[in-house]
Design a protein around this nucleic acid. Structure first.
Lengths: 134, 134
DNA sequence: CAATAATAGTTTCTTTTGGGTAGCTAGCTT
DNA sequence: AAGCTAGCTACCCAAAAGAAACTATTATTG
């Protein structure tokens, strides 16, 4: 089976289009965001990204990999360990993702939605990121 | 008929998710980008955003409006004139869209795709943006 | 007078794709 | 024998997107 990227056979019509073809979809933004937070293992991502199913997570990760935004490192261990990391191109999206997150937080507050990062939820997530193999 | 936003009945899981729920989809990024370029009329957008159908353009515009990212101004003229503009919240996305565009251009060049903005295509588009009613 | 053109859409129908569910797997550890 | 990790597969549905035809209003042209 060949590696399949998210990209339809359609040529991007401009650079914005090009970018959205790669980071569009329901989970890719959040995946990049979490990788940046230091959450790198498949299982950790699965637990952090609320609502994602194994199928969709794997699919999104494969596409990001095929598009050169992340790398995948398999450790020959048991039980298996796979770590994902942002590639150089992927890392360059970080400022962008941060802007987006800031914008989102601001808008959520304006709409009276409590911003999650103010509720002590992030610390719990970050804990996981820094857990040693227990 | 009630205004319907793009947003499914699903609560956003984080601010990044929140943002993607609003600017996801095939055309919204490009619409915001073009509005920023000064292309504000329905017909001009339709011609600039390659591949968009009237249905999809209208739908995306309506959703952006319902989500408070753009405004819609109807002029009581014949033939009809409707102009769209970024709202305050929408305008705050501009830095982000620019980052995305820059990233896209850089990646496209690395992949050997000629960057459109280097081919004299943008000038043609911008012309349209500054045309007075002839 | 009738046809045409222009703008900003709408409507209906069809296709495509993305996403969801559920259950299965391999290999080693405890 | 059970459990852990990191998946895979087949099937299904809903949402997104695409195609094509149609609309209202008025000025202009023949």
């Amino acid at each position: 089976m060949q590696k399949k990227s998210a990209i339809p056979d359609q040529e991007p019509q401009c650079s914005v289009d090009f970018a959205f073809q790669r980071i569009g979809g329901k989970y890719k933004g959040r995946i990049i965001f979490h990788l940046d937070l230091g959450i790198t293992r498949y299982g950790a991502l699965r637990r952090s990204i609320v609502g994602v199913t194994p199928k969709m997570l794997t699919q999104a990760l494969r596409e990001l990999e095929a598009d050169g935004l992340i790398t995948r490192h398999v450790f020959a261990e048991v039980p298996p360990r796979v770590e994902y990391a942002l590639s150089e191109a992927g890392a360059e999206l970080i400022p962008f993702i941060r802007l987006l997150r800031d914008w989102g937080e601001k808008q959520m507050e304006k709409q009276g939605k409590p911003s999650l990062s103010k509720l002590g939820l992030l610390p719990h997530i970050l804990e996981e990121a820094h857990e040693e193999t227990v």
